[in-house]
């Protein structure tokens, strides 16, 4: 006998839902034995951002990105910088009405060369992300995924067909941290990073350093080495500064020394491109040639102030520079 219960297999939570129950993401609901998305075509955040803000430093520098997000997330990170929409139920936040066709139309009208599915968690608005991405691909617009990576292999494989670049949050190398602080687990995130890389998607990784929780130098080393060993020395790694937020409003911001030290340690492991975000540190936003050390891309905030990459190569020594540099010389 059928019970009208369903099991969502989109993410590793694998929620089993009776009729009238919604998943841990808060945006997928069992309606009389059918699973529905509560947020399709209803973004709650719509902005135009520089691509550097995602952060992506090696993917078409200087382009504007049409960035959207719905309510909801399948994690519950205590430090979430977007908690007002990520931890909200869809009925608690007023959305825009923007079906996929309108997303593409808007992106084109504003001259955006890419669309980013970001701010909250595009995994939970999977169908909307996928349908927008398909249309964007047809329209010649790039697709960027900014994600915590908590997704199962099957749906990731389907989505990654349309994704040109991704920034994946690797919050810690500790499964205990993922469970206690984020409400998830570690391994699926590691698998996502590797799968995206293997699918040909351009991948950059971000680690938010939270004082007292994941700022131990040994953990920084472990994380850096994992990125190096599993994705190669050309994967950009961004260390991001934590600011007091949500359930960690009493913690101090990450110190500049910690961020600088993390970057130095990561580069000592052999990673070629390590950056610091949400803070000003010496060299923290400069891309240098790993062969000759020449400045390739200099940035002030999100603004590019200097560029020296020609046809994907160092403008000084001609070493190939990992990344997607389409149209860089023209912007």
């Amino acid at each position: 006998m059928m019970s009208n219960s369903v099991q969502c297999v989109l993410c590793p939570h694998l929620c089993i839902l009776a009729p009238g129950e919604r998943g841990r993401c808060r945006v997928r609901l069992n309606v009389e034995g059918e699973l529905v998305s509560l947020v399709y075509g209803l973004p709650v955040a719509v902005h135009i951002d520089p691509v550097e803000k995602k952060p992506l430093f090696h993917f078409m520098p200087g382009i504007d990105v049409f960035s959207i997000a719905t309510a909801g997330c399948n994690l519950k990170c205590e430090f979430c910088q977007n908690w007002e929409i990520s931890q909200a139920a869809p009925e608690d936040v007023t959305p825009y009405d923007m079906p996929p066709e309108a997303v593409i139309e808007n992106a084109l009208s504003y001259g955006c060369e890419a669309i980013a599915y970001t701010y909250t968690e595009p995994v939970v608005f999977f169908e909307y992300t996928r349908d927008c991405a398909r249309l964007a691909r047809d329209a010649g617009i790039k697709n960027i995924l900014v994600t915590a990576g908590y997704i199962n292999p099957g749906p990731l494989s389907e989505l990654s067909e349309y994704i040109d670049a991704a920034n994946v949050d690797l919050k810690s190398m500790s499964d205990t941290y993922y469970r206690n602080i984020c409400g998830g687990t570690l391994q699926p995130v590691l698998d996502t990073i590797i799968s995206l890389k293997e699918s040909g998607t351009w991948v950059e990784v971000t680690n938010l350093i939270v004082p007292t929780l994941n700022d131990d130098p040994d953990e920084i080393d472990l994380l850096s080495r994992w990125v190096l060993d599993n994705t190669g020395n050309d994967t950009p790694l961004h260390f991001s500064r934590f600011f007091p937020m949500y359930r960690l409003a009493d913690l101090a911001p990450t110190s500049i020394d910690t961020l600088r030290g993390a970057r130095e340690r990561a580069m000592d492991t052999g990673l070629n491109y390590v950056y610091v975000g949400n803070a000003v540190t010496p060299g923290g936003t400069i891309t240098r040639c790993p062969e000759c050390g020449e400045t390739l891309v200099a940035r002030q905030g999100y603004m590019i102030t200097e560029r020296n990459i020609l046809n994907g190569n160092c403008g000084n020594c001609s070493a190939p520079i990992a990344g997607v540099w389409d149209g860089m010389e023209e912007r």
């Binding site: 006998m1 369903v6 099991q7 399709y40 209803l42």
Partner: peptide
């Protein structure tokens, strides 16, 4: 009222009690 959708989701299985 259009504040949420009931858009068919993908990636789920039906649970059989048997």
């Amino acid at each position: 009222t259009g504040l949420v959708t009931f858009h068919k989701a993908d990636w789920y299985v039906i649970v059989d009690d048997e």
